[in-house]
Design a binder for these strands. Structure first.
Lengths: 234, 234
DNA sequence: ACAAAAGTGTTTTTTATACACCCATGC
DNA sequence: GCATGGGTGTATAAAAAACACTTTTGT
C-alpha cells in the first residue's frame, strides 16, 4: 500500500472589479512580504483552517482584503500537482500544497481596500498585470476566461451594479470586460430589453450633457424562469 | 494564529459512456465493500498518493477499473466542506477529506470492466442509478450537467467514437445524452457538415436494411481554427 | 443652434426549425 | 415492390448584425 500524500489546502482568489468611470477591468493583487517569491505580486490567498469550509475560506480571504457588500463568488479550479509550491521542494514527500481557486466579481465603487501596512495591495488593470508568484498567472488567466463566459451566459453583472442603473452603464460593463468586438449599443439594448427582466423605474437621470437616461432595475422574479436556459446576453 | 486543517485528498471520478446499440447513457459505479456506506454504490475513487498529481490520480482510478484507450477526461469540481465524510466525524478536528472530482467520457464498446472479485463494478443506466454513498449523488448530477454542456460546446464526442463513423452514429450519441428534445436528424446533419471539420471518407457501410451510410472522420486540423469559438452543435 | 447622449426603427443577413421528398439497399 | 434507413431540399420563422434616424437634454 503506497503512502498517501498529506495536504495543506490553500484558497486563492481571482477577484475582479470593473471601474465604470475609467472603463477598466481590474484584478486585485497582493504583494508578498515573505519567501518564497518575496516582493512579487500574487493572488490573495490563505490556508484553510480547522472546521472551515472551502467557501468560507474564500470569503474570509476576500473580507480580509476588501470591504464590499455586493459581489458574486464561485469556485474556479483546483491546482494540485506536486512541486507547484517551492515550499514542498526541500522535502518532496512531506506535505503538499493544493490550491483551490475561487473567482469573484465585486463592485468597484464601494470596495474599500484594507491595507495592513505590511504587504501591498492594489487593483491592477488586467492589461498591466505583472508576472505573478507561484502559478498564479495561470490561475488569473483561467479566471479571466471564466469571467467572460459568466458575463455572457448568466446575470452576474447585476450582482455588482447599483440597485438601479442605466442601460449605458450596463453596456459599459459588458464592453469593458468583453472588449470592443461585440454588439453595438443599439442591438445590445434591444436584445436585453426583449428578455424582459429589466424593469424601467421611470426615474430619469442626467449625466452631464445629453438626453437623460432611464434607470432600470434587475427583476429577479422575471428572470427566474430563464435560469438554466443558457442565455446569451452578448 | 488559528490551526490549519490537515487534509487527505481523494479523487472521485464521474465516468460516462454511451451504448450506441441500445442508446443508453451509462455511469460507472462501484459497490463499496467496507465501512462507511458498506454495500452501497459509489463513484470510483482513490486517495492521492505521494508524488502523484491530481490528474495522475484520476487516470489511475480509471485504469484500475476499466481498460480503455479512447476517452476524454477533465476536472469537475472540488468538494471540501468539513463533515462530508463520516470518517471525520469521530474526531472532527483531525484530518479532513477533500474530494476533487473528475469527469470522464469513455468509449463503451472497447471498455472492459476490471472486476477485482472483492467489490462490485457496473455500468448503470443514468435513469436507474440508486442513491449513492457520501455526496456522490450530487457529484454525479453535476457531472451529468457538465457532460451535456461539453457535448454541445466542444468536440468530445469524437474522442469516444471510432476513427470512422456514420453521421447517424454521431446523431444517436447526441440524442442519447441530450434527450429527444433537440434538432431532428436532417438539421443536425446540415449544421455539422457546414462546420467543415467532418471529412467524408467516401467509404460506404451498410447496417442491415436501408441505403448504405458514408463513413466520416473528424478532421482535427480543420477544427483547430474553431477552438474557443463557443460552437454549438445542437 | 448645436453637440452630446439616449432611444427607436429599418434593412439585410444569418441561423434555426419543421417538414417534404428523393435515393439506395435488403428482403 | 416496398420497407428501411440515408441523404437533400425548401419554406418559414426567428435571431443577429449593421446602421440610419429621432428625441431630449446642457451649453
Amino acid at each position: 500500500m503506497p503512502a498517501l500524500a498529506d495536504f495543506k489546502v490553500g484558497v486563492d482568489n481571482v477577484i475582479f472589479s470593473v471601474d465604470l468611470v475609467q472603463n477598466r477591468l481590474l484584478a486585485l493583487l497582493i504583494r508578498r512580504n515573505e519567501a518564497p517569491y518575496q516582493d512579487q505580486w500574487s493572488l490573495p490567498g490563505t490556508l484553510v483552517r480547522q472546521g472551515e469550509s472551502l467557501e468560507q475560506s474564500a470569503y474570509r480571504v476576500l473580507s480580509e482584503k476588501i470591504r464590499v457588500k455586493h459581489l458574486y463568488l464561485e469556485q474556479l479550479y483546483s491546482f494540485g500537482g506536486p512541486f507547484r509550491d517551492p515550499r514542498e521542494a526541500a522535502d518532496s514527500f512531506g506535505v503538499r500544497y493544493l490550491s483551490v481557486s475561487y473567482f469573484a466579481l465585486v463592485q468597484y465603487e464601494e470596495a474599500a481596500l484594507i491595507a495592513d501596512g505590511v504587504s501591498g495591495i492594489a487593483w491592477y488593470p488586467m492589461d498591466q498585470v505583472p508576472k505573478l508568484a507561484f502559478d498564479h498567472s495561470d490561475i488569473l488567466q483561467y479566471g479571466y476566461k471564466r469571467l467572460r463566459n459568466k458575463l455572457e451566459y448568466s446575470p452576474i453583472a447585476f450582482d455588482v451594479l447599483p440597485e438601479v442603473f442605466t442601460l449605458n452603464e450596463l453596456y459599459q460593463l459588458y464592453q469593458t470586460v468583453l472588449g470592443e468586438g461585440f454588439a453595438d449599443y443599439s442591438n445590445f439594448r434591444t436584445r436585453l430589453l426583449k428578455l424582459g427582466f429589466l424593469a424601467d423605474t421611470g426615474v430619469k437621470v442626467s449625466r452631464g450633457a445629453g438626453r437623460p437616461a432611464s434607470l432600470y432595475k434587475f427583476d429577479a422574479e422575471a428572470f427566474a424562469p430563464l435560469k438554466d436556459k443558457a442565455l446569451v446576453f452578448v
